[in-house]
């Protein structure tokens, strides 16, 4: 265009660059909470202690205003014939497994959100509706969620559930570590009701110590593995078992945080917006050069 200088182009680029930089700084501010407090809480689940009474299922539903029914109806053990998963109607379920050779007693495994230290859902959520709180809970914010269900695709434990049958305000449902109860100084509902205290509530650091001690004292009883100590970078809920965890349907997971690779790619692409801005400048350069060369060619011909 006549009368325009190259400076115009540079100026425009600079303005866009500044805008983009502005975006990046506010991203940092609005990012979801992902606090890893030194004394975050956790639960140690000892599957060898659990008796499969399913009182925790009842307590959980009651604490979360889900239809729970009578407590004694949970004595029905026929539910154990199939393996259940936490869902929209129950945020925690207990499954039963044969303990194998040396005992007549079955192993019961309570399943719920593991409350990862580096949660995939927190990293994945498009609007940052998930957050890792100071007390270790990974919670979900109904005011933000758009229902995209990326958290469900991301979760390595396949925990979040979605209310597919709701047309308006369907929710993501998962264990919230009784965030509202613990805020008031109460114990999580399942921990409070457990008759045998198969669920020990305490700081994660102390629970790891206790778990190690239990394994050390009873090496014949436990497998030497605290599930959740290192899996996906550590989880707030940890398990002890007398049987290899893969036989109890625990997923085989590495020690790297679930969102690790994804986040490093993201942060690589968006390292302070340098790559996109450089690409922008590069393309601008190419555009300018190719146009310029074309015009020189044309002039030469004329």
């Amino acid at each position: 265009m006549p009368g325009k200088s190259r400076r115009d182009f540079l100026k425009t680029t600079a303005v866009i660059g500044a805008g983009v930089a502005g975006l990046s700084s506010s991203t940092a501010k609005a990012a979801p909470k992902n606090i890893l407090s030194e004394d975050r809480m956790g639960v140690l689940v000892d599957t060898t202690v659990c008796v499969g009474c399913r009182n925790c299922e009842w307590a959980c539903k009651t604490a979360h205003d889900l239809p729970a029914g009578e407590l004694h109806s949970y004595e029905d053990r026929s539910v154990f014939t199939e393996k259940r998963r936490p869902g929209t109607k129950a945020l925690t379920v207990v499954n039963e497994y044969s303990s194998g050779k040396n005992s007549n007693l079955p192993l019961d495994v309570k399943v719920q959100c593991m409350h990862c230290d580096h949660p995939a859902c927190v990293s994945a959520c498009i609007v940052g509706a998930f957050s890792k709180e100071e007390n270790g809970s990974v919670i979900w914010d109904t005011d933000k969620c758009i229902g995209c269900r990326y958290c469900m695709a991301a979760c390595p434990f396949q925990v979040p559930a979605f209310e597919y049958d709701k047309a308006i305000n369907p929710s993501i449902m998962k264990c919230d570590f009784c965030f509202n109860r613990t805020k008031e100084g109460k114990l999580p509902a399942c921990v409070a009701i457990c008759p045998v205290e198969a669920l020990t509530y305490g700081t994660r650091t102390e629970l790891v110590k206790i778990a190690r001690e239990r394994i050390k004292r009873n090496p014949d009883k436990y497998v030497d593995h605290i599930f959740g100590e290192y899996e996906v970078g550590g989880t707030a809920w940890m398990y002890l078992s007398s049987k290899d965890f893969s036989e109890l349907d625990f997923p085989k997971l590495g020690t790297n945080p679930a969102p690790g690779v994804s986040e490093s790619i993201q942060h690589g692409i968006f390292a302070y917006f340098v790559p996109p801005v450089s690409l922008y400048a590069l393309l601008g350069g190419i555009m300018w050069i190719s146009k310029h060369r074309k015009e020189l060619d044309e002039e030469g011909k004329l």
């Binding site: 499969g52 053990r77 007693l105 457990c194 045998v196 205290e197 102390e206 629970l207 206790i210």
Partner: peptide, 25 residues
Amino acid sequence: ISKPDLEAAYHRQCITCHREWSHGT
């Protein structure tokens, strides 16, 4: 929290055996 509380201690003593032969809790 290294030891179970009293309620759990009682229950562990009883339920562990009782559920073995009653197959219930």
